[in-house]
Write a protein that binds this DNA or RNA. Structure first.
Lengths: 225, 225, 225, 225
DNA sequence: GATGAATGAGGCTTCATTCAT
DNA sequence: CATGAATGAAGCCTCATTCAT
């Protein structure tokens, strides 16, 4: 909690570099060792400052976490925005969302992982701030699925809320294994995950009318290109 | 394991209750606040002991984490064991694994969540101990998928390793949202997740030859009943 | 300090064995690891009891130290007594004292070492108790030296108090190296130390009149046999 | 040495004073109450800092002990060095060593005492470090005695190893009584101890050829002046 | 901007001791 | 006699944070 906002608010100043490098170092260490196990000393060492010096840039260790989570969050919201502007069918949108998510995750792996794993360490106030915007993601995906059901593209028996949880969970879990997956490009992952997800959602009629699974996927990829 | 095992080895004694209640209290608090943010004081308070008194039962705070993770782990391995003894087709096995996982997770939600989220806080030695057995899970699922491909049941274009990561990730992510999902029974979740997963994996031929998606699922449920 | 003498006073009872074995175990561990570094747990383990159980025999950990020191002390006092009853010349008495000391030390190495090294850990009250009797030793040696000077046997220029400190210190320092000296018998040590001490003390006239250093030693050994 | 040298390495900086005063305070308390019985609190109080604050200067309580022992050790080694450069007879060298030892001890009484009495409290690693250099002292004295025997100055019947133990022990035991001996100057002690030691070692021929004990001592003092 | 020094609170752990059974 | 369980005090150490320079 930003008790006393005496100092630190260097947005846009020339010291932005320093602040950024502090935030980045923090993100990397929070990702590697966890928020609680990372000391301000660790972070300062990484940037070549002394422990006390980083308080010129921030007000508290939690500030760093919040900033990291905020940044990662913006990426996620950009993903929503991008996808929501696509003028395609619901299934194609869900495919696109998975794809974009993997891409966005990849581009900011570290911070996204910190977001996913250390969200809990935020103060309650800040949890609320993030959560507010956070639900948007699930709501957006769910709205796609609902629309898909209305249009008959998505299996009508599907509990859309539950499906959303599963899909979001699958994507977020990348935080835990993405490092090991050095052998796959984000495109490959996005492609396969998109396919699995879509095929798991699609209604019988949709598949039949598309001429089968392969054709459905091909058709979706066509829509999106 | 900590230096010298001077004390604390009350396995099987009549004081098991106390130890168990300490472990359970710890699990709950680790789940709620995180391992690092939970103090031994917190745990002791919860059980009605003094901070120092819990060291009559354990040797270190990390012991508690280890015990919790071990216990949750055993559950997971039992799940593998159960499923691997089923004499059914690969797709039915993957369905069963997802189902069982959800059930097992539900039965020991708290400890499973602690396992998934706080694994990192273990000492390196202990990480290794758990990890050793831990890979078994992914390997098992993957072997099912590979067999499914060989039998033509699973989409031949699927990268099984990647698919495994996604499925396991989806299931593990329950740690993050299961609490909210008070409205669904584990059976419902297992059922829908199993369905989505299977449909996302199945090959074109498999679906066609089963007479469509609905039929495939029905057939699998038949195999398993 | 024996706060509340509620229990523990089993002198002469049949449980003497147990008490003795506790005291002995304690002595050994205090000698090996030091008083502060030895826990009651350690001692109890050694005797095959539980930590709490030894409090049936003693009132406090310090009791053990006190008992050990007392016992070692008695040995030292017996040495004085023995030597003081010898009807020989002062130099022969100092020779005998050194000799006896080495022997007595050897016979009760462990407790003597604890006495010498852990005396400081006693409560002030008990320090006083031991010290009272303790000075006797130095005083006795010094009285021998003084008498030696009066009789012309001991170098008249010698500061007897200082000499006493040195000699006693040399003997006590056995606590630190005796273990290593597995190659020498206590007789050998006593013999050489006695010789060095006596020759360091003897007056010119005494040596001359005895016919030299060798003769003096031979003569002293004669007196004592 | 403790796990990770995260901080504390202020050698040579301007804050040396603080570190020194902490080390000195620690030395005094370790000397007075013993290492184990001295708390970091005690030390901090003495220097006017908070308990935790002294960790800005050190990494562990044992660091303090080690530093103290190291410092005292250097003094001892300087003593060897000084004496070994003297171009005098072996007996004169042993006289000089005793003398120098007393002087060096006096100059750094407190730390020397801590060294002698609390060596055992060091970690095994550090024990080894000190011990390595430590044996040098005994070896040096012994080599003097051996040379003395070869030149006929030292009693040929003497077991040099045992004599070394006794002499070193006598000198080290100053830790136990020096405080009381406020009435003697280090010169007086060194002088008498040197005399006693030399006379206890000298061979019959050496004394005779020097014209008696007094003459021998006078001659040695001549050599050294 | 950055440093060095210090704070103060809290965390984990140990241990002598007690006591009902 | 001995156990098992618990107490309570203390100990070592870590760390986010502050602030004068």
């Amino acid at each position: 909690m930003p008790k006393s906002p005496r100092k630190a608010d260097h947005a846009g100043t020339s010291s932005n570099n320093r602040l950024e490098s502090i935030v980045d170092a923090a993100a990397l260490m929070f990702h590697t060792k966890g928020y609680a196990a990372t000391s301000t000393q660790d972070i300062a060492n990484e940037v070549g400052l002394l422990k006390g010096s980083i308080y010129y840039y921030i007000n508290s260790k939690e500030d760093l976490l919040f900033r990291i989570i905020e940044e990662s969050h913006e990426g996620a919201l950009r993903a929503i925005s991008t996808v929501s502007h696509l003028d395609v069918s619901p299934l194609a949108q869900s495919y696109a969302l998975v794809n974009t998510h993997v891409k966005v995750f990849h581009d900011d792996r570290v911070k996204h992982s910190v977001f996913f794993r250390e969200f809990r360490s935020l103060s309650d106030d800040r949890k609320e701030i993030i959560r507010g915007a956070g639900h948007a993601y699930s709501l957006f995906l769910r709205s796609i699925l609902v629309e898909g059901q209305e249009l008959g593209q998505v299996d009508p028996g599907l509990n859309t809320r539950m499906a959303t949880s599963g899909i979001v969970g699958m994507m977020n879990s990348m935080s835990f294994w993405y490092q090991e997956g050095g052998s796959w490009t984000p495109e490959e992952i996005g492609s396969q995950f998109g396919e699995q997800v879509v095929l798991g959602l699609a209604s019988e009629e949709c598949i039949v009318s598309s001429g089968g699974r392969k054709s459905l996927i091909k058709q979706i990829r066509g829509e999106l290109s």
